[in-house]
Amino acid sequence: MKLGARMMKTGLAVGIALYIGQLIGFISPLLAAIAVVFSIQPSIYRSYQSIIEQIQGNSIGAIIAIIAVFTLGNDPFIVGFAIILVIGLTTSLKMNENTIALAVVAVIALMDTTDQTFLYFAGSRFSSMLLGILAAFIVNLVFLPPRYETRLFSKIDHATNDILQWLRVTTRQLSDEPALKYEITRLQDDMRWVDHTYLLYSEERTYFKGSRFSKGRKQVLFRQLITTTKKSFDVLKAFYRLEHKIEQIPEDFQDAVVQELDKLINAHEKLILSLKGRIKNTHKQSLRQIEEPDIPLLVERLMHVYEESNNPDKLVFLPLASQLMEYHYQLERLKKLLKSYQTHHQDDFIQTSEK
């Protein structure tokens, strides 16, 4: 079993909330632990948003619960009516599901039957829930803050390596079809995780003007990295769909496709290596000049193949040509953005691995 940072944060925050709740003498410190579970977030920015929203949601629940008890009592049907009001109000304010759920828990906890003074009872339970929310925020802020820059690059790097390896195998008609089908499904999930991690990375806030400018350039570069990887994945899917039809085109053209795609793959890999800092600055320019792919010429040759043949089935290769052109275009754009970033931010490296 792999223990993630969020799991450890949740356990630590629950322990802190229970300990402080018992130390202060709250009636129900268990409510603090419940609030923690609903309040832990994957990033500091979302944790900040969550603490504001959770306090608002719990305040709404507490106010409605107190009014309901003093005016209507705490009959079970009154509790249900109060919950309906809280859900309706928090939903209309577009609060998230965790906030709504915790507000409902607040209503149930505050409207419970007790022999104690109601205001003291309600205040103690409401304070317990606020303690849990604050404990979750502090733990998320201090303990193992997420490094989404490193995580994002790692996910892009792994997905790109897998895609490029499968492209090399598939273009040479060496791939196992069931295995490739499974890998395409897995890679689609990987790309969804890349998009999700990029969203979390883009939400991270910087507090210095110079850092904000650098972060903005990094975001643009990462977005282009993701776009380029997705285009390479589109090429892989196009080859997978045409695997049994490749033999319809002349062998010399098949060889040309493999050669040009290899050049694209090599160029893509060199850009990733450059980002990792594994290529010396003095050699970057010479590496870019080695075997530059000429995809427009390849597409032009494909058009000649169509003109020389009356077989309409060969038109199925037009989408492949389009995907190759788009992949080449996005790769060239990535090259320009990377060069620009490395020129203007020589001392601000992208964190590609944990220190």
Results as ranks from 00 to 15, higher is better:
residue 4 G to F: 06
residue 8 M to K: 12
residue 14 V to W: 00
residue 23 L to K: 12
residue 33 A to N: 06
residue 35 A to S: 12
residue 46 R to K: 14
residue 56 Q to H: 08
residue 64 I to G: 00
residue 64 I to S: 02
residue 66 I to C: 10
residue 86 V to W: 00
residue 90 T to S: 06
residue 91 T to C: 06
residue 92 S to Q: 14
residue 98 N to W: 02
residue 113 T to S: 15
residue 117 T to A: 15
residue 118 F to V: 06
residue 128 S to Y: 00
residue 129 M to E: 02
residue 142 V to I: 15
residue 145 P to H: 03
residue 147 R to E: 13
residue 147 R to C: 05
residue 148 Y to K: 10
residue 154 S to G: 10
residue 154 S to T: 13
residue 156 I to Q: 04
residue 158 H to V: 15
residue 161 N to D: 15
residue 175 S to W: 03
residue 175 S to H: 11
residue 178 P to I: 03
residue 178 P to C: 04
residue 179 A to F: 13
residue 179 A to L: 15
residue 180 L to I: 02
residue 183 E to I: 11
residue 184 I to N: 03
residue 191 M to L: 15
residue 195 D to A: 14
residue 203 E to G: 06
residue 203 E to H: 08
residue 207 Y to V: 09
residue 208 F to M: 12
residue 211 S to H: 13
residue 216 G to Y: 12
residue 219 Q to F: 10
residue 223 R to V: 07
residue 229 T to C: 09
residue 233 F to A: 00
residue 239 F to W: 11
residue 241 R to I: 08
residue 255 D to N: 14
residue 261 L to Q: 04
residue 265 I to K: 01
residue 269 E to R: 15
residue 272 I to Q: 14
residue 274 S to A: 09
residue 275 L to V: 09
residue 276 K to I: 01
residue 277 G to W: 05
residue 280 K to Q: 13
residue 284 K to A: 07
residue 286 S to W: 13
residue 288 R to V: 05
residue 290 I to F: 09
residue 290 I to M: 08
residue 301 R to S: 08
residue 302 L to Q: 10
residue 305 V to C: 06
residue 310 N to W: 07
residue 318 L to M: 13
residue 318 L to K: 14
residue 322 S to V: 12
residue 328 H to R: 07
residue 331 L to E: 01
residue 343 T to I: 10
residue 343 T to C: 07
residue 346 Q to C: 08
residue 350 I to G: 03
residue 351 Q to C: 08
residue 353 S to Q: 14
